[in-house]
Design a protein around this nucleic acid. Structure first.
Lengths: 159, 159
DNA sequence: TCTTTACCTCAACCAAAATTCAGGTTCTAC
DNA sequence: GTAGAACCTGAATTTTGGTTGAGGTAAAGA
């Protein structure tokens, strides 16, 4: 009888997909992007070391934090001591990403506070409403507003 | 002498762009998506009511919260009392979006807590690590992991 | 009037993160 | 030994939120 999946030394791409919750096509994609690696069997099929499973987990976590794949890749590339990520390496990455996450949370909280302030006023004035006036150029996707208001409005009520 | 920009009844697209901080091309785009409207002059140029300025502001704010344009559009379409958004309408939307924002913040905070817990352990086990096991299927972009772990790993240390 | 700036449309393109599809190979099981 | 599942590659397609460019019209100022 064959060893149970959790005990195999190597995993097929399908097993990786099932166990990581990531589609096979995504695993192919990650490999093309250099995020994970595999050896090939004589029949050209992928075989993954179990460690790759953890790596995929880390990738998904980083993505949830909002790190783009390219950054994840370069973070992984910059792992010290030649390519075999130790537990300390994971910790380093985790701490860095947690800090980024903290930043994101802070920005969103600021935004929410502005919302709360604004709801009573409802003005959304481009010149006096904190909500409309982006303190932070987060630029989550695409180049955001340029904020180049030249002529000011006379008052909040005018808007 | 012409009236100052802040006092005009209607704005050209360029004025809208300058005052809202959004590129002209983006305004065109929003209009194609049905997010804003304009009348046309005899020469086929856009003229916006001042209210559109506030609307653009609301769009940008909603985007910062993470609401996709399509949802913003449908929220605007569903405004009650026939298409002229009152201050109450804005408040309604603001409150809804603030709630969504709250949700997002909570999810991120949960994630950060998991990070903090995990950094000491560093395991990222797919079965026992809170970090790797996505509580929330946030699906921020693209269809996320399916989370369909069939065969369990025996222990955390095994991963 | 003439020049410059602003505006128009339509089409093509960009980036990220994948998915889907076509056409073919390899394993596994009965 | 053959069916069917799983795998392979490469190219095309998807979605979101726009930008860029070409080719042409409109309006404003000296």
């Amino acid at each position: 009888m064959e060893a149970p999946a959790w005990n195999k030394a190597e995993l097929t791409v399908g097993e990786m997909a099932r166990r990581s919750g990531v589609a096979v096509s995504a695993l192919h994609f990650y490999e093309r992007q250099g995020l994970i690696e595999s050896r090939r069997t004589s029949g050209n099929q992928r075989r993954y070391k179990r460690a790759m499973l953890r790596r995929v987990a880390l990738i998904r976590v980083a993505q949830r934090v909002g790190i783009p794949l390219s950054e994840i890749a370069s973070a992984m590339d910059n792992l010290p001591n030649g390519r075999t990520p130790t537990r300390e390496d994971w910790e380093q990455l985790s701490m860095r990403w947690r800090d980024e996450l903290d930043e994101r949370i802070k920005r969103l909280q600021q935004l929410r506070d502005d919302f709360t302030d604004c709801i009573g006023c409802g003005c959304l004035s481009l010149t006096c409403c904190a909500l409309a006036n982006t303190h932070d150029q987060l630029g989550e996707h695409g180049p955001g507003p340029r904020v180049l208001l030249e002529d000011a409005e006379p008052s909040c009520a005018d808007t």
